[in-house]
Design a protein around this nucleic acid. Structure first.
Lengths: 178, 178
DNA sequence: AAGATGTGCTTCGAATTCGAAGCATGACTC
DNA sequence: GAGTCATGCTTCGAATTCGAAGCACATCTT
């Protein structure tokens, strides 16, 4: 034990006990919800959560279509994963893919009528299930508070500089001592 | 579709607009956090989130050991998935598996010293990262509120009757028609 | 105490996931 | 307008995921 407390003494924990507990409970609850939802959607409509989200985002989008990148960003999914999932949906006739007039590189994904119909058919049951799991035990104030807090967190995370997000080299980086 | 509006009239949406928005934002934020954390842990300690959670749960457990089932339940993971992950951790010498004295069927998983060491080494950075992402934009009251709300949700979901949870046939099921 | 039913874990197979690499188009500089 | 860097998407390979089925032990019933 040669710790004659130099400069770094008792090492303040970065997270207070309350924060740690909050983090754990948040994670646990989110995982539980996620698994239940996955199961429900699969059973009820034969869709995975991502597929459901894709249909939902497209149904809500201007003109019912979005580019692959926009979609990947909205549903928080990898590009390659999205390619795979959209491929499945297209095979099932729930979405279409076509070239973008604006940008020759882009692919526009659009919901089909069947896609909209399926989404509309599934939504009520899904909403009911979400209500039973998430909102049933919460008051209106709880919901408002939760929305407010999570919105702030989401915006904060989205605004954070991507940690190791230079997979593609950045342009002429002036560097540390530029 | 011979729906000549029978008893079910305008179909009140199950979720209010506020609830729907809350659900979306919650999901989005949780997914964002999850992805970031996954990446950070992988980069920083060579572990997946589940592996990290397993080490954490074991480190915090009485005697540093738990059965596979207890562990699967705590980290919210499938049994077979846990078998796989624990197998990986064992290969890396971070945990041990052994028979349970109480129940010959059970397997007891225990953290090794190396496992504890690794977990302890990784934790601070992880905590810092969680702070930056989740707690930085929140006040103390926000954190308290979030913990309280999520605790209620977690307990509620845990208490719910498993929806389609009869993967193994139930005992002498009288069946639909006796 | 034998037979039936329940529980704990692993194996197996099929589907999904992601990052890295590849390919094509766009944008910017000189 | 050729060269260079940036962006959008897909392909590829390797790793992970889950449920169903299988195996072994435990518990309950008669």
């Amino acid at each position: 034990m040669s710790d004659h407390e130099s400069h770094a003494a008792p090492v303040d924990p970065v997270l207070s006990p309350g924060q740690l507990e909050t983090y754990f409970v948040f994670t646990e609850a989110a995982d539980l919800l996620q698994h239940q939802i996955e199961r429900q959607l699969r059973t009820d409509g034969g869709l995975s959560t991502v597929q459901f989200q894709i249909l939902g985002r497209l149904s809500g989008a201007e003109g019912g279509r979005l580019t692959m990148t926009q979609l990947a960003d909205l549903v928080v999914y990898s590009r390659s994963g999205l390619t795979y999932q959209v491929g499945l949906l297209e095979k099932s006739g729930l979405v279409n893919r076509g070239p973008s007039p604006d940008d020759e590189r882009s692919t526009l994904v659009a919901v089909t009528d069947r896609g909209r119909a399926l989404f509309g058919r599934i939504l009520p049951d899904h909403a009911q299930r979400v209500y039973d799991m998430l909102f049933d035990p919460l008051s209106d104030e709880d919901v408002d508070s939760l929305r407010e807090v999570m919105t702030r967190v989401r915006d904060h995370v989205r605004a954070l500089p991507p940690r190791s997000a230079a997979p593609r080299r950045r342009r002429a980086d002036p560097g540390p001592q530029g």
